[in-house]
Design a protein around this nucleic acid. Sequence first.
DNA 1: CATGAATGAGAGTTCATTCAT
DNA 2: GATGAATGAACTCTCATTCAT
Lengths: 203, 203, 203, 203
Amino acid sequence: MPTSRSRIEDIRRHELIEAAYQTFLDHGLNGLTMARISKRSGLSTGIINYYFKSKNDLIFAFVRKAYFRTLTDTARMLRTARSPRERVDAIIAAHLSERIFTIEGSKAWIGFYAFLDKRPDLARLQRVFDRRVISNLVHALSALVPHEEAQSIAISIVVLIDGLWVRRSTDMTELSSAQAMTITGQAVDVMLEAALRKERNHD
Amino acid sequence: MPTSRSRIEDIRRHELIEAAYQTFLDHGLNGLTMARISKRSGLSTGIINYYFKSKNDLIFAFVRKAYFRTLTDTARMLRTARSPRERVDAIIAAHLSERIFTIEGSKAWIGFYAFLDKRPDLARLQRVFDRRVISNLVHALSALVPHEEAQSIAISIVVLIDGLWVRRSTDMTELSSAQAMTITGQAVDVMLEAALRKERNHD
Amino acid sequence: MPTSRSRIEDIRRHELIEAAYQTFLDHGLNGLTMARISKRSGLSTGIINYYFKSKNDLIFAFVRKAYFRTLTDTARMLRTARSPRERVDAIIAAHLSERIFTIEGSKAWIGFYAFLDKRPDLARLQRVFDRRVISNLVHALSALVPHEEAQSIAISIVVLIDGLWVRRSTDMTELSSAQAMTITGQAVDVMLEAALRKERNHD
Amino acid sequence: MPTSRSRIEDIRRHELIEAAYQTFLDHGLNGLTMARISKRSGLSTGIINYYFKSKNDLIFAFVRKAYFRTLTDTARMLRTARSPRERVDAIIAAHLSERIFTIEGSKAWIGFYAFLDKRPDLARLQRVFDRRVISNLVHALSALVPHEEAQSIAISIVVLIDGLWVRRSTDMTELSSAQAMTITGQAVDVMLEAALRKERNHD
DNA sequence: CATGAATGAGAGTTCATTCAT
DNA sequence: GATGAATGAACTCTCATTCAT
């Protein structure tokens, strides 16, 4: 059995992850300095390197947590959905909810994407998460359209969501969480409609 | 006539802009250091500040050039379009052409977006460019659907394009330029279809 | 009680202030580089910015200390003075004492004056110090001559002192501390004499 | 016969000296850059090093010119003086005239003094100038008081003048040219008075 | 004579990481 | 477990000087 983590270790790791994540949201990846994390957490810089091999490790940890949180949100929202269509909307909502779809957040995350270049481990993590999201969407959409169409629409949805995050970050069209969902929802509408019509014509 | 730039100044400025741009594409905005630009251009670091007030100035210069190039591409491709629909595709193609829709390029540009936060001048430049693109799209779409619909679809298109750039940067779905255009084209198809049907129902 | 400074912090700050001050005396303000301070203190350049927000901050710190030391000297010397006239001499002596009235010191400080132009905070500090000095002189002189005369003479004294520092810095007339005090003392003599005579004539 | 200077050389040297001097007055010694001199003169930076071995050489040239100008002013003003006392005032006036006793000028010159440290040639030049000034004063004062007294008073005068320049530079007591002359003049009055009284007592 | 392009050393500052305590 | 002192490399920018033209 491996050395089980001590109580204090769990606490500290959690504190540092949260502090790092908030700092990341506030200042972006470039503004994410050890000093700031230290200040925010109320812990010393030294201890950060004690619990995490490096700053990059800490980044990995909070990204993982953020991804996990979104997946958890998705699962929770899926439980209240009463129809296939609502299931799709639930997944979308989990990615555009007010809590996360903020200007600062979008700026931070967009910067994060660019960072993946130099961080294969993060890129891998991101890929896993992304596949999960698409898989969720495909599953929900498959109840409405053929599998092939479902996949195509799922891709379009995640592309749209990414694009909305980009636009949110540029602060261009004061895009609210609700507006973003509406845009995506309508796009889903027309895509489903088109898919269904196509299907009908085939019959 | 204002003070005409000397031949050598034009050459050097161009060389430095190109060197900076290539360095940006290769290493992203964070890896864009004076030393690298200097090395790539074969010139000293000192001369960069001789021709450009600051590194930020140089960034501004190559971003402007890149934007301008895309707008020029757009204009050129619009000239060969033979129908309203082709005009829309031309604009889309200019933003997803093989020349620019590369992995490195997308990574660099996504990182650039995150940078706008701290650079109001670049943000302004980006906004002007963005409005130009949307305006072009709206104009082309207005020949096919009512103005209001044209605007809505135009927004969806730029969101999609942004999203595709993001996905390209994550290198996820080994997204080719051609595939990206197909995805966008199909989305335009269903959106136009839906808009026209809606119009017909109103009559 | 505010956050008490750690023992080591006090020590390092003191070391750095002293190292900076000595470097300043040796090389002047232009020769006061971070590298030299680092070398002199035996510490890295990084740690300087750890304890002081900037180089300017460090300059502020040692100037303040130097001013404070002179004011302390003044107070100490005033305590041993047995007559109004001796009080005036005590103040003068504090500004022309052998310890501070050195060639290097005068050169450095004259250069410092020129620097005030670009440093409002230092200029303010200097002004406060200067007023304190004049106030001390006026107070001492008021026991001998009318207040108005006291002020006029006080100004003349500080002007003389400044002038003597300038001459000391040019190393011209190998001006010793003692000679400088004699010159100032005699000037005070004649000024007091003149003031008293004037007063007598008025009666 | 040495190579006589060409007409153009004289012109250019003069232009550069003037440009350098004005730049010095405006920006101080630290702000005296080749680029600024070049801009002010309308000539290239290259040509500066063609006519002057180095920037330091150019500084030497304009300092010499400025000193010479003051000596010329002194001579001119001495010609209109109608009494020994007026001769003394004339010399003082030449050093505190409105034209030169400006805030910027004093700041620049005070900074210059500090610079003498690293420039033996300039220090020598300064010394020669200084001796000339004292010599002029002693000569004028000798018509009024014994030689020994004249020397002592002359020193006091130059010390006062230096001190007034320092105070002008700190901009402390918005000291005007006229006020500076008054202060010096009154000091001369009391010193002469004291010297004469002393002489009388000796007889 | 004159230009201004080009260099490269040196400046202050930031920061992740290490390590003695 | 925890601190924060300390390092040193990396960064951008400035500048006097040189030199091909």
